[in-house]
Design a protein around this nucleic acid. Sequence first.
RNA 1: AGGCACGUAGCUCAGGGGGAGAGCACUACCCUGACACGGUAGGGGUCAAGGGUUCAAAUCCCUUCGUGCCUACCA
Length: 819
Amino acid sequence: DILCRFKRMQGFNVLWQPGTDHAGIATQNVVEKDLAARGTDRHTVGREKFIDLVWEWRRKYGGLILNQLKRLGCSCDWSRERFTMDEGLSRAVKEVFVRLHEEGLVYQGDYIINWCPRCHTALADLEVEHQEKESRLYHIRYPFESGRGYLIVATTRPETLLGDTAVAVNPEDKRYADLKAVRVLLPVLNKPIPVIFDSYVDTWFGTGALKITPAHDPNDFEIGNIHQLERVKVIDEQGRMNELAGPYQGMDRFECRERIVRDLEGLGLLEKVEPYRNAIGHCYRCKTMIEPLLSKQWFVKTAPLAKAAGDAVRSGRTRIYPVHWEGVYFEWMDNIRDWCVSRQIWWGHRIPAWYCAACGRVHVAKAAPERCAHCGNPELVQETDVLDTWFSSALWPFSTLGWPDSTVELSTFYPTSALVTGFDILFFWVARMMMMGIHFMGDIPFKDVYIHALVRDAEGKKMSKSKGNVIDPLEVMDQYGTDAFRFTLAALAAQGRDIKLSEERILGYRHFVNKLWNAARFVLMNIGPIKTTGPQNLPSTLADRWIFTRLARVSEQVAQAIEDYQFNEAADLCYQFVWHEVCDWYLEMAKYHLYGEDTELKQATAANILEILTASLKLLHPFMPFVTEEIWQKMPGKPGSIMTAAFPCATDFPTDETSLQEMDILTGVISGIRNIRGEMNIPPSKTVSVVVDAVKAHHRDILNRNLDHLKALAKVDTVSVGTALPKPEASATAVFEQISVHVLLKGLIDFEEEKRRIKKGIKKLEKEWEIADRKLSNKGFLHKAPTEVVSEVREKAEALSAKLSKLKENLSFLEGIHD
RNA sequence: AGGCACGUAGCUCAGGGGGAGAGCACUACCCUGACACGGUAGGGGUCAAGGGUUCAAAUCCCUUCGUGCCUACCA
């Protein structure tokens, strides 16, 4: 949003496609609360009732919520027309699926899914939570078919042995070298299964012999493929043992485990049981232990798509910021596996495929075929599986613009400029959009990908719904204000680093919002009846020349920082400029003119502070949209919204580089006096007299022209500026450039204190001088360092030693008095 | 186990080969006509430790320690 507001203010035609990041938490709350209010939950609500509720939610909260429902394992019957949640997207999804199928990039195959027997859904890898748990490692004897001896196999899941179709050992394992072509008997079922050799097996783990259950373990499935093993599925979708489990049929999987262990013991086949800790996959929603199950799934062949998507980044057509993430992206693209796109959930785009009720053939088409193209049977049943959320999400950059029609929107906005997202969906979403965009549009979907920081909790952990360590943004906004929160996020969003949310920082930026508000109040209070606004009121005073010069530079820097996705840099520049330059110096100096007698100057100043406020609001608007808009609406001559105002540009303002140096002199002298006042504990109510001894004529000029500011800002009553002036006796002295500022402290000065202060200054300077001097006496430095660096150090050393001698002079003067 | 980050002021963090920074907290003096959610000034750091490259290292490289994240697996 910061980027969009900024671009729009720069005059770009902005199309913002809000993603669904962060919608998940809100959706879950809505859904769960609503179900709870009705005295039910998502496991028991039932499909029909749920579908009705989806419609209510949709009316109440809008369409965005639906995308998130899929993640909750919610689903509905896609064939029912009233659930066409987004006609455009739905069309695009069918189009893409059918085309991929025609190109041979879609196929059906066997796959081990992570099945939750309670939610009745398959879970993506990311949705499986691994929890370390106390468990047991069972050592089970598999007798040799020959009848003599046995092989010991270690397992944590004895109930799956009913589906074993082999026992594997490592070919390097000498213990089992003589088991070639040997078979063992599956305990209980007494079914002979082969011993196979595969290097996947670790010799050091357990007994070095691994039971292979291709239908209930992803790794065993892979091994099974290599060795062409039979796949025996013994656990069903309810988590119960099926007819292939023999005597255990109908038992729950956990009950079966107990029974089979007891039976093995009875048979003398249980060698031993060891306590064991291991991580077991659980459903991230209901915490039920997941069951890996064999099933038929739809796949997309990703190799050709991923190659093109990788090349687009390699060639720089799409750039990923921070660049560090490019490596992660390549890593994934280069090692990609085929994408399983089918999901067994209640809500989603139903796969456009039909099975013939007679011959069983599959027909992939955009609409239901009249009859089977193979056998002519008119009875066709649509696939009940729906597509992975990311399948439709992958089409986002072009499906939302009207594809497959060629629309004006599509030709105007595709490829898009930038995608801003979190790293956690770099693979799931960004990579898929790249693949689909390039494949179907023939061009990249976006030029830049900015991977933003992730907000973590106080311990630096990733926030997650299931962990419950989520900071609710609405609460923070209530507490500190939306603009303060937003500004904080921007200020903390350094590239490549995550955000540990700090309440102190939010509080600090809330104060900043308040400061801006008060500064605006001051300006609006003092501009009076402005006749004209804008830069036609040429700045004449030092303060004006200086602030416009600074404004020009800051505007440029802020714009550049945003362009570079350095949001923290941009936010900080705004903060420093508005608070410490505009408020601390400029407005303070403007007061003198506003409260003065010179009506012409008064009017010019009024116009200028208004101009500076206007520009400051514009600079801040992308970061603090609400307060800037609110102030904007109160300002005279500001039609419309600040959103449509032009972002400040360096060339909008009159600049004068010499004003920067002049201002340095003035602020330097003022700071010097303030420093003495502070160190000497002189209350602000007490004014002092000063004598300024300046060597350079133009320094004296600057000071003489700004005596009033000096008096007002340093609380000075009388001041005399001259050269080679003697140091007044009862005075403290600040040295700056070639200027000595003597603050008269008759009756106030504590000479010991002043000596201490000067000694402190000398000590600090000497340290700095030593560093510079060491460099200058280093031949290597003089020869090899760049000339500008050498001359810089030389100048510095000279300035330091000049200042030092001034301070020492002062010190001996003081010591003279005292003695 | 592997990969990737990160250890800078009491706290939260910027910066990043030539002068140690911000916000909050702290100390002192102040309700001065926008603002005490404020003003002015001040104190506070061997930039994790050790080594290397360089004229020059908080910054680049290596090692160690610590922290966090990601990925995989744990039969």
